[in-house]
């Protein structure tokens, strides 16, 4: 442990990987009505890698994640400042097609949220939304996505059954299958394992490992071990600010800031 850096303007950038930046976040702030939740965050998410976001409850990591596919638009009184770019194109800005933007990003939520339809229809929902009617294409997509989400073996004989009959872990993998069915660039995961038991959690983690490389994955997690296990880069946030951002291994073995050190060793948070 070396330097103790003052709290305010600290953002330590990791070296960029070979893929370059997929998402660039520049001086991004957000207000819920009068209350500011994010304070001028700046960092890049690297293409093809898994980026974990950690930090204590209420630090703004989920908010930041939900800003990426503009899910926060649904909340009244949200105001943002700064910029966010996906592959160089502005996420926020006049004339941005939000629906097209969301189609480039899959999202997996904290609690599994399968739709009250069959497993098959859940997986092909993004294609249905696009108006695809070609049966062969739908079937192929369902199979590919379910295989990608490691659910094919369990689900192939019950594709027509209700998705609500699956277990929690299976439901979450189904949601991952749904998120990757339309082949997005980025996969956003908002604490995908917080409602699951340890076995289901480890399956999801294995899955994230398998998906790495094909998609840029941003995962919000409360579980430090999980962040250490699955991610390449880790961003530590605190009170709406990005405190430290770097390669996971370095971050967990040798954090640059004391506050990061305290958090990952469990002294607060």
């Amino acid at each position: 442990m070396t330097a103790v850096v003052a709290f305010e303007p600290t953002c330590v950038h990791p070296r960029l990987g070979p893929g370059g930046a997929n998402v660039e976040i520049r001086d991004f702030s957000l207000w819920y009505g009068q209350k500011q939740a994010l304070f001028g965050n700046t960092f890049d998410v690297q293409r093809g890698l898994v980026t974990a976001m950690i930090g204590p409850s209420g630090c703004g990591k989920s908010t930041l994640l939900r800003c990426l596919n503009r899910m926060n638009d649904l909340i009244d009184g949200v105001r943002i400042e700064g910029s966010m770019r996906l592959d160089g194109a502005e996420v926020y800005g006049a004339g941005v097609d939000v629906i097209a933007l969301r189609k480039r990003m899959g999202m997996v939520f904290q609690k599994p949220n399968p739709f009250p339809m069959s497993i098959y229809e859940n997986v092909v929902y993004p294609l249905r939304v696009d108006g695809v009617r070609d049966r062969a294409l739908l079937d192929a997509t369902a199979e590919r996505a379910l295989k990608g989400a490691a659910l094919w073996e369990e689900a192939k004989d019950r594709l027509k059954e209700s998705a609500l009959g699956l277990s929690g872990g299976q439901q979450q993998r189904l949601c991952i299958a749904r998120a990757i069915a339309a082949d997005p660039d980025v996969l956003l995961m908002d604490e995908p394992c917080s409602a699951l038991d340890p076995i289901a959690t480890s399956r999801i983690e294995e899955l994230i490992d398998e998906l790495k490389g094909r998609y840029t994955i941003v995962i919000v997690t409360h579980n430090m071990q999980q962040a250490a296990r699955v991610s390449d880069n880790t961003a530590f946030m605190y009170l709406g600010r990005l405190i430290e951002y770097g390669e996971t291994e370095a971050m967990f073995t040798n954090p640059k800031l004391e506050r990061t050190q305290s958090y990952i060793t469990g002294r607060f948070g």
Binding site: N69, M71, L74, I99, A100, R102, K103, M105, G106, M107, F109, K111, N113, P114, F115, P116, Y125, P126, R128, V129, D130, C175, R178, A179, A182, L188
Partner: peptide
């Protein structure tokens, strides 16, 4: 209709109307 259903649908790239038609109204 739970918020998570709407968010799930919107995150899939469905428009608001598609979300209402496919998810909200049936529920």
């Amino acid at each position: 209709v739970p918020r998570s259903m709407r968010e799930g649908s919107l995150a899939c790239g469905a428009s608001k109307w598609q979300t209402i038609k496919y998810i909200v109204l049936p529920r």
